[in-house]
Amino acid sequence: MQHTRRLATAVLAVAVLLWSAGCAPTRPPSGTGRTRVTPTTVAIKGSDTMVNLNQAWAESYMGENRDARVVVNGGGSGTGIAALLEGKTDIAASSREMTAEEIAAATKAGHAPKAQIVGLDGIAVIVNAANPVQSLTVAQLAAIYTGKTTDWKQVGGNAGKIVLLGREVNSGTHVFFKEHVIQGGNSTSPAEYAKATLFVSSSQAIVSEVAHNARAIGYVGLGYVSDAVRALPIAPATGKPAVAPSPESVVAGTYPISRPLYFYTRGEPSGAVKAFLDYVLSADGQAVVRELEFVPVT
């Protein structure tokens, strides 16, 4: 009887110990309603394209540093930058550069924003291995995806209807390709995906269809390009040399369908923010970039 009671007490004590060790330090006081909860909390807000990447960084960073806390929010690059100016976030994630006005506003408020490229977004245009087309210009690509060009022979290929493959609207790639190629970087352009575009539910499915269909064209993140398909070199404009998509050409900025992904901080990063940024740029952090089909900086 006494034996059992002692055992029960011991079990209870161990449980209490484990519980207090397990949850006490990782749960900061909450209820202030602001994103900066404790000094060790890093708040990231901004680009929806980057939100999964930011989340993945946050998770692996918190997994390695038990007392660190990273809060990720989306909303768009502009939202993130506005929040940074108002001091509501530590890091603004942005898939575009800050505008001159935004930088001026920040400098006026007393903290010149510091930009850090944390990864790159590059999209490869893929065709079947048997397709004779060697390269396309961005304008040709836009004409193909808006339905103005419908036959491969119009761009130097074998006669045959072009089968357009795209990602579903919930994909960041869909949005990036639309803004960057179809609208030609002009966000007010009324250009749209051709109605005949087949919206496919995954990048893997695009690769698989292009691999089997000689008339298909599709676009996927660089990480998805395999030997089964051919990634077309793309020329930024007629007369300019076409550049093959590769991590190097994306990093060099010569490949036209790519963009750097930024982290903006208020002035030089320090403390917890700096520690997190160091992690993001470390080999581990850049491995996360590759995992999520973006292009690492280094």
Binding site: E168, K195, A196, T197, L198, F199, V200, S201, A205
Partner: peptide, 9 residues
């Protein structure tokens, strides 16, 4: 979702 093409035509 997987095979019908999903174009908005």
């Amino acid at each position: 979702l997987m095979v019908a093409g999903n174009s908005i035509e």
